[in-house]
Design a protein around this nucleic acid. Structure first.
Length: 404
DNA sequence: TCTGGGGTCCTAGGACCC
DNA sequence: TCTGGGGTCCTAGGACCC
């Protein structure tokens, strides 16, 4: 049976959503129509471009470059801060709206969904019409625009929605791959990033079409097991299912760029404590336990490190996890200046195993109970209501706000 | 004034066991 | 004391996505 997959992608999501929010609050200016970006706080060294308006894009401003660079390109650029809580709400609204069309839906990111409409032709006679309806409904009801891509698999649907925008519907069926996709530069292919594209270009493969007809033998040397994946992608071949992405290494993490580089162990410990506490609370919220703990950090030259350990017993107790985090960090930390630091809990499980310890007097049980009570209080009165007295924050005086 | 934050997946190499 | 090879698990690092 022919599969029918839609990919719905919010145009310049963060910027569009901020524009909607501003208009709702009575602002006259629509920032989608001027050279503007959403960017992090430069003083806190979070100063990169998170989203750009179409005009800013045409001027050559790219996502993830520094705001400083963006300003060099456009002198009168307007910069607005992100509003993640609002974005999450808008994302939920769109997701709920889309759910009415199919139960097989995957939230790929905060601003993208895949929908599997295979076998629904008795409901929807014309998929192109349906795509236009979805696009127009979202625009008229929620105030932001989307691109809808239609294809016979996720890859093609995604490549289709990446074509011209905003507020457009594109198809990329099998018989369109050659004429619509092959002329595109290799960087445009989904899952081809900087490293892969520079390798490909170095051997004379410059377009998706070049890759599509390349000999696997020739590429094997450079891309090993990834070779056929790349060639298949260039040919629009992909059989991955729409649905929740499953993986055995499911993980949650938190990290932050410090306001200034820090080499003092005690100061870094405080950051790690705050992060561990917050992440452990997230674990408890989703009723999971971590089987692996990892500390990752970047030094002032941006070299990154990650050090982790599998635990004997899955945990979600803040203090217990903090002990693991500090032990791991202590063993690897060489006293360098640290720019960015974070914690990851991985191999999450729903099953709790309590280690039998005759001499422990249920200490862990008691600590878990305390965690739950503290979580409860923090939920009621704000997330900083209860924190350990030792926790003096470095950098800004306010607590780093979790943004996503 | 260079370079955010949250994810997933893959791989090389080492440890360990049989 | 010297030693193969296969399998599995773990760790560190990197690539890619948004």
């Amino acid at each position: 049976m022919q599969r029918i997959i839609f990919h719905v992608d919010v145009n310049n999501a963060f910027l569009s959503w901020t524009a909607v929010h501003m208009l709702e609050k009575g602002e006259k200016l629509d920032i989608r129509k001027i050279p503007s970006i959403i960017g992090g706080n430069e003083e806190d060294r979070h100063g990169i471009v998170l989203a750009k308006s179409p005009i800013a894009k045409r001027m050559g401003i790219k996502t993830a470059t520094t705001i400083y660079e963006a300003r060099k390109i456009c002198k009168n650029l307007k910069v607005y801060p992100p509003e993640y809580d609002f974005y999450r709400k808008e994302s939920d609204i769109m997701y709920e709206y889309l759910c009415q069309y199919t139960p097989v839906i995957e939230r790929y990111s905060i601003d993208e969904c895949f929908m599997d409409l295979t076998g629904t032709n008795y409901l929807y006679k014309d998929y192109l019409k349906l795509a236009y309806k979805i696009k127009d409904d979202i625009k008229n009801n929620f105030g932001f625009t989307v691109n809808v891509g239609i294809g016979e698999n996720k890859l093609c649907a995604k490549m289709a929605s990446d074509m011209e925008g905003p507020d457009m519907v594109h198809t990329l069926y099998k018989n369109e791959i050659e004429c619509k996709m092959w002329h595109l530069p290799i960087e445009n292919l989904f899952m081809v990033g900087k490293s892969t594209s520079s390798k490909l270009r170095s051997i004379g493969i410059n377009t998706i079409g070049d890759l599509a007809v390349a000999s696997p033998n020739r590429l094997e040397k450079y891309f090993k097991n990834n070779t056929m994946f790349l060639i298949n992608s260039a040919n629009g071949i992909d059989d991955s299912p729409v649905g929740r992405r499953k993986s055995k290494t499911e993980s949650i993490s938190i990290s932050e760029t410090l306001k200034y580089d820090v080499s003092d162990f005690d100061e870094l410990k405080k950051v790690l404590f705050r992060q561990t506490e917050e992440l452990a609370r997230n674990l408890r919220d989703i009723h999971k336990y971590a089987t692996g703990v990892c500390v990752m950090y970047k030094n002032s030259s941006f070299k990154s490190y990650s050090h982790g350990e599998k635990l004997n017993v899955p945990k979600n107790n803040s203090i217990e996890l903090y002990k693991d985090v500090i032990r791991i960090f202590k063993n690897s930390f060489k006293g360098e200046l640290i720019r960015n630091i974070g914690v990851r809990f991985y191999d999450l499980t729903s099953v709790r195993q309590v280690q039998i310890n005759l001499f422990n007097d249920n200490k862990e049980e008691k600590e878990s109970d305390v965690d739950l009570i503290v979580d409860d209080i923090n939920k009621k009165f704000g997330s900083v209501s209860i924190l350990p007295a030792s926790l003096k924050l470095i950098g800004k005086s306010e607590r780093h706000k979790k943004t996503k």
